[in-house]
Design a protein around this nucleic acid. Structure first.
Length: 479
RNA sequence: GGCCUUAUCGUCUAACGGUUAGGACAUCGGCUUUUCAAGCCGGUAAUCUGGGUUCAAUUCCCAGUAGGGUCACCA
């Protein structure tokens, strides 16, 4: 069924009506991956035929979003290409040309009704609990079409259509799905139903990948392909992404967020690809953490799901953490430093932060919670906090002094977490419980109830500062 | 309401018609440990219901139920 000899051409065709969300990007991702995998062409096309809903800046937003996540295109509005332009509003000549063909073949006619009249037909159908079909009201002698009038397609062959979908297999729909839909609106712009077919034809798109909300209108498209005597492309209907409740399709109305928010929250692009890839597709193995390259390699239309996939942000956090863990040290440092104020850009605290976050934005929380204060300002604390459970001040003092003496004798060069651990554990093992030694040391260094262990803390603070802080704890205990 | 379509642990999913129904997230427990985080080990937990077909059904068929989509001069 798939045409192996022909070059694969896919496209992502958003309309510039605001921000893109995960659903849009997931569609783009699959179309892109399929083209990439087959050395095909991936086109970015802007479907800006609804001037009323157009939102300024949308195109930049799409471009920025795609570039951020790492999806690139071979042809598009910003880079041009052999089938330019890539904005529908600049392709009106093409639509007009095909409209003329349809008009000549008596496959199109001018719609004489006002919008209000059509609306009345619709209302009536709705009240009678019937689907609204314009063709029930098809005018007998339509006026000669002028560009200020809406132009409708004329379905002549009212029948049940069947077609193949690469995801869902063989599909069919009743004749009720066919109607005289608008080809060109009163404002001169084409509708999606018409424009995308002409564009896909002219741009040589071989595989149409889009959400499965288009299944219902596919028979309309098929009737238009037939009228124009165009060969059908391959259809790849993608399952919807459901919201967190798993019930409704995720959309802007119900909380889908601006895709760039994920960038602002510090998610990794590859993690986003990984996450999005698995909503609606699964390669079958048990591997769940994939690089971009692995995803492209594994991607297969046959394994795209039929039923809707849920959107689970907990899983995204987990995937992102896995990607953070796999980051090369220099890149990890670069990322983390970019979220840190200058005084905290300390090489050695990178691992401490890395294992405590699932996304880089969590660093802001760590800073706000004071978890990183100890690295650039001296901790404040009361003597009670230095005591472990029921250990007395006297015993704690003895332990701390013991630690102090031992650490003082350690060379600056040997002041590593490994060495310090050996030393502290040795002292701690001689105490009643290890906590008698380790807790006061950790607390003296951090001043925090929760913190990294005292060994790594000593190393990061360095010998001088470690000794200082231990001395201060001893002072406070002596008060 | 018409048409289309979907149904496996709480969530995302795997399983040529034959499996103790597998994995991941979450959750719970243990180990490690001064605390936190990380790590390691383990537990709980699912085939929507009812009929068929078959030696055998999560898998194929039908119905029911429950979801989703669509019925625009939006895409």
């Amino acid at each position: 069924m798939e045409n192996i000899n022909k070059k694969i051409v896919t496209r992502f065709a958003p309309s510039p009506t605001g921000f893109v969300h995960v659903g849009n990007i997931r569609t783009a991702l699959y179309a892109w991956a399929y083209a990439k995998k087959n050395n095909g062409t991936f086109i970015l096309r802007i479907e800006d035929t609804d001037k009323a809903r157009e939102v300024e800046g949308s195109i930049d937003h799409v471009v920025t979003s795609l570039k951020w996540i790492g999806i690139d295109w071979n042809e598009g509005p910003d880079i041009g290409g052999p089938n330019a332009p890539y904005k529908q509003s600049e392709r009106l000549d093409s639509y007009l040309r095909y409209a003329k063909i349809l008009l000549d073949k008596d496959y199109a006619y001018a719609d004489p009704y006002t919008e209000e009249e059509v609306e009345a037909f619709r209302k009536k159908a709705e009240e009678e609990k019937r689907p609204f079909l314009y063709r029930d009201h098809r005018p007998e002698n339509p006026p000669v079409w002028e560009p200020s009038m809406p132009l409708r397609f004329k379905v002549k062959d009212i029948k049940s259509y069947e077609w193949d979908d690469l995801v869902r297999g063989h599909l069919k729909a009743g004749a009720e799905a066919l109607d005289d839909f608008i080809l060109i609106k009163g404002d001169g712009y084409p509708t999606y139903n018409f424009a995308h077919i002409i564009d896909d034809l002219e741009m040589g798109v071989t595989h149409i990948m889009r959400g499965d909300e288009f299944i219902s209108s596919t028979p309309k498209f098929l009737s238009l392909y037939d009228a124009l005597e165009i060969k059908r492309p391959e259809f790849v209907m993608l399952p919807p992404i459901m919201g967190a409740d798993g019930k409704k399709k995720l959309g802007k109305r119900d909380g889908a967020k601006d895709f760039l928010e994920y960038r602002n929250e510090g998610y990794l692009p590859d993690a986003m690809i990984n996450f999005l890839a698995f909503i609606g597709w699964n390669p079958g193995g048990e591997k769940e953490v994939l690089t971009k390259e692995e995803f492209i390699e594994l991607f297969d239309i046959k394994q795209i799901h039929i039923s809707g996939g849920g959107y689970n942000e907990e899983k995204l956090d987990w995937i992102n953490k896995e990607h953070i863990k796999r980051l090369p040290a220099d890149l990890l440092e670069k990322h983390i430093f970019s979220w840190l104020p200058e005084e905290l850009q300390i090489k050695k605290i990178v691992p401490i932060i890395a294992e405590r976050i699932s996304k880089f934005g969590d660093i802001k929380d760590m800073i706000n919670n004071g978890e990183l204060d100890l690295f650039y300002k001296k901790p404040e604390y009361q003597k009670e906090k230095l005591l472990y459970k029921n250990t007395s001040i006297e015993k704690t003092l003895i332990n701390l002094k013991n630690v102090l003496l031992t650490l003082e004798s350690l060379n600056e060069d040997d002041f590593t977490k490994e060495n310090i651990k050996i030393i502290l554990i040795e002292i701690a093992d001689k105490a009643e419980s290890r906590g008698d030694v380790l807790h006061p040391v950790r607390f003296a260094l951090s001043g925090l109830d929760k913190s990294p262990d005292p060994f790594i803390l000593s190393e990061i603070l360095g010998k001088t500062e470690t000794i200082n802080r231990l001395n201060r704890a001893i002072e406070i205990l002596n008060l």
